[in-house]
């Protein structure tokens, strides 16, 4: 059990670090459009999470409406990036696994049909909006 916990924490920490480095590179120019998305390169259509970098950078520049316009998912990502490092450090220092149990609970909740279907619908709606905006 501890190995899965440690694997999850390592993965989260890696993703957060990558996210912060990525944000640091892109912070100076909020309106630019960094092209790393595979879907966009292959099909020419933006993916559901395209625009989240621009969303976070405009939020950090104080532009909340712009952030919501680019991609509401960006705010969610920023929240995870702010909370996860603190939570991981706390868990590792106190030798607990509160984040791991939260993660398992979250997985279980999301697998229920009455949660999953609205979530999928929201992501699809956001995706349609993304394509309409032409990110």
């Amino acid at each position: 059990m501890t190995s899965t916990r440690n694997r999850l924490y390592l993965l989260l920490a890696l993703v957060c670090t990558a996210g912060y480095i990525w944000l640091f590179i892109n912070l100076p120019n909020a309106e630019s459009s960094p092209d790393v998305c595979m879907i966009k390169h292959v099909t020419g259509i933006p993916c559901p999470s395209c625009g989240s970098t621009r969303s976070i950078t405009s939020l950090l520049h104080g532009d909340v409406t712009g952030s919501l316009f680019w991609n509401p998912m960006g705010i969610l990502i920023l929240l995870i990036m702010l909370i996860a490092p603190v939570w991981i450090t706390g868990d590792v220092l106190l030798k607990k696994q509160t984040l791991f149990s939260f993660y398992q609970q979250f997985e279980k909740t999301l697998q229920q049909r009455r949660v999953a279907i609205p979530a999928i619908a929201l992501v699809l709606l956001n995706w349609i909006w993304n394509i309409h905006k032409g990110l």
Binding site: L8, L11, V15, A18, G19, W22, V36, C37, M38, I39, C47, P48, S49, C50, S52, M73, L76, I77, I80, Y103, F106, E107, L110, Q111, V123
Partner: peptide
């Protein structure tokens, strides 16, 4: 396959930057 948490992670980060 039922790895919902990792799935959400991949969805939010555009497949982990590809």
């Amino acid at each position: 396959i039922g790895d919902t948490g990792i799935g959400v992670g991949k969805l939010l980060t555009c497949g982990g930057f590809g």
